[in-house]
Amino acid sequence: MSYATLKIEYRGAAAWVWMNRPELHNAFDETLIAELTSAFTALDLEVAVRAVVLAGVGKSFSAGADLNWMKRQGAAPPESNLSDAQKLATLFRTISICATPTIARVHGAALGGGMGLASACDICVASTAAQFATSEVRLGIIPAAIGPFVVRAIGERQAYRYFQTGERIGAGRAREIGLVHEVAEPDALDAKVQEVLDALLTGGPLAQAAATDLIRAVAHRPVDDALVDDTARRIATLRATSEAQEGLSSFFEKRPAAWVPARV
Rank of each mutant, 00 (worst) to 15 (best):
V17M: 01
P222W: 07
N26I: 04
E246A: 15
A109T: 06
M70L: 15
A184C: 08
W16D: 06
S135A: 15
R239E: 12
A219Q: 14
A133M: 07
A226W: 01
A144L: 12
I169F: 03
A130S: 13
A244W: 14
D44A: 11
I97V: 15
V218I: 06
L117R: 03
A99E: 12
A240W: 00
D229C: 10
A191D: 12
V196I: 14
A209M: 06
A244F: 13
P22M: 08
F252H: 11
W16T: 12
G64A: 10
A109S: 12
L82Y: 08
M115A: 11
A262C: 03
A174P: 03
T231Y: 00
A129F: 07
I235P: 03
T231W: 01
A257F: 09
A211Y: 08
I123C: 07
L189H: 02
P78S: 12
M19Q: 13
R221S: 05
V137P: 10
P205F: 14
L214Q: 02
L139P: 03
N81V: 00
R11A: 15
E176S: 14
L32N: 00
L179K: 05
I142P: 02
A210V: 06
A55W: 03
A85C: 07
S96R: 02
P101W: 04
G112I: 03
R175M: 15
Q245F: 08
S83V: 02
S135W: 00
A232M: 12
V264K: 06
A15L: 01
K59C: 02
M1Y: 12
L111K: 00
G64K: 03
T100Q: 07
C98R: 03
I177C: 09
P205A: 14
A226I: 01
P148L: 02
A14M: 08
V183F: 04
A13D: 09
R11K: 14
A63L: 10
R221I: 04
V52A: 05
V106M: 03
A258M: 09
I154Y: 02
T5C: 13
A232Q: 13
T5H: 09
V53I: 14
D187Q: 11
W259E: 00
D66E: 13
A236T: 13
E79W: 10
T237S: 15
A145T: 04
L117S: 02
F40Y: 06
C98Y: 04
L214W: 01
D122L: 11
G147P: 02
A240N: 07
G172T: 11
I95M: 07
L111W: 01
W69Y: 15
